[in-house]
Design a protein around this nucleic acid. Structure first.
Lengths: 263, 263
DNA sequence: ACCTGAACACCGTTCAAGT
DNA sequence: ACCTGAACACCGTTCAAGT
């Protein structure tokens, strides 16, 4: 395949997952001088993204980590974006979906609320563990196998709520867009603490202190002091935890109320 | 002020809004050869971000638009990130907060549900109109005047729900992280359509068709056909609209149910 | 089939110099 | 006080060449 052909297909394709089969398979071919293959490239990319963040991630930096030239990587992936899409789907494999969520045909006594909590917690964990996931999940088409498995699990659980079909996609949004937003903020906060080299609590109180020094802000901030204090929890971590679980219960309660009304 | 000093302060600062007063004021100084000032720079940046997206935005591109050298801009802002923070806060000024949301001291007969809907709709509109806002809002500290005004308005409205103080931050999350997630996906979708040069409906059906061609995906996709069809609305726009408003009602209903239980 | 080196067209930012 | 030009240390990606 000539470079020109590849370039043409690249711009037409909406996702790596739509590339043709020949390249899709990949896997270890063995016997290469450098021992390179797609799996190893993607795994290294994930490790690097976790360690140094999306902003610092580059094809050249990745190649150095793999002890090859930058251009070697391009034999296995067409573009940086394709590679990021592969990395993105990889970490969605961390959600423990198949083990816990019953399939369509299976009978199960599990309560949909518990299943939904489980999926929400899993999703949040992915976003917090890998802060680079959020901007990518918002950008790409998201049709990798792991993401699809996750999202089909979500659909199966929502089906059990008793909501009419016409409102099920909305319920999915209410739960998982909330988790996406929450996990995004939380992940970035943690990333910032790490970058600044201070603990979560330290970073938090430093930020408050800094904001309070700006006169235009501080006087209006006084009004929201009460709400911050009543939030509960001694550490930032506990605050996040309480907010997340309470908010999740609010949304679940909203679905219940909706079912009771329309069902 | 020497460059070295600036560099030092830059790395210590957590946000543009914490820079010292001398620079903060800014505004039109007049009489400069190029007529440059912070407001004009930020306004041009917003226009450029809207037109070409965050990925293509660069200091050099911006400078060209302003008919100056790239380095002229650095007289008014310390870094590209600072400029992006300023642009971010600017568009939050588009939310019509002060006109509609009553202050703390004011008596108002307005229902908190209506006020909350209004704020949610405003926030979504910002995210959809400016798809570059979402990754920035997730990254920065977000303490610009317009964002703070918006977020204090949110706090005032939530206070009227009757929820206990300890659960108000969670309720804020439930509503506005959902809107953030929803607006993010929607904004990126619209951006992608524009980039591909096709209508929303065309892009949508093309994407479905492309996904269906991958055998591993298509057979499992069949199961979610029903849910997509029952969603309602003939166009993608109508689908987004229905999902958003239904999901918002679910969350509002969740807050109501919570109030009824604990209040 | 796989990998490299040089090159192109970009970045953000620094620094010393101009007016 | 404001603006420029040259330079540094980077990018993603192309292309022709190597083994």
């Amino acid at each position: 395949m000539v470079a020109a052909e590849r370039a043409k297909r690249r711009s037409a394709r909406a996702s790596v997952w739509l590339e043709d089969k020949a390249r899709r398979g990949g896997g270890a071919r063995g016997g290469q001088p450098s021992g390179l293959d797609r799996d190893r490239i993607v795994a290294t990319a994930v490790a690097l993204l976790d360690a140094e963040g999306l902003a610092k991630f580059s094809m050249r930096r990745l190649a150095a980590e793999l002890n090859v030239t930058a251009m070697s990587v391009y034999w296995y992936v067409d573009t940086k974006d394709d590679l990021l899409e592969l990395a993105l789907d990889t970490v969605f494999g961390e959600t423990g979906v198949p083990a816990t969520i019953p399939g369509d045909e299976e009978e199960s006594t599990a309560d949909w609320r518990d299943l939904l909590r489980e999926l929400a917690v899993d999703y949040r964990a992915v976003l917090v563990r890998h802060p680079w996931v959020s901007p990518l999940a918002g950008t790409f088409l998201n049709i990798g196998p792991n993401y699809l498995e996750f999202s089909f699990a979500v659909q199966r659980v929502i089906r059990r709520t008793g909501l009419p079909l016409s409102e099920q996609t909305a319920a999915i949004s209410a739960v998982f867009q909330f988790v996406y937003g929450f996990g995004t903020i939380e992940g970035h906060f943690i990333e910032r603490c790490a970058a600044a080299g201070v603990s979560h609590d330290e970073y938090f109180s430093d930020a408050i202190a800094a904001v309070m020094q700006v006169p235009e802000i501080s006087h209006v901030m006084e009004r929201s002091k009460a709400i911050m204090e009543a939030r509960g929890g001694d550490t930032v971590g506990e605050m996040f935890e309480r907010d997340f679980s309470t908010a999740l219960e609010i949304v679940i309660g909203g679905i219940e109320a909706r079912v009771a009304r329309v069902g």
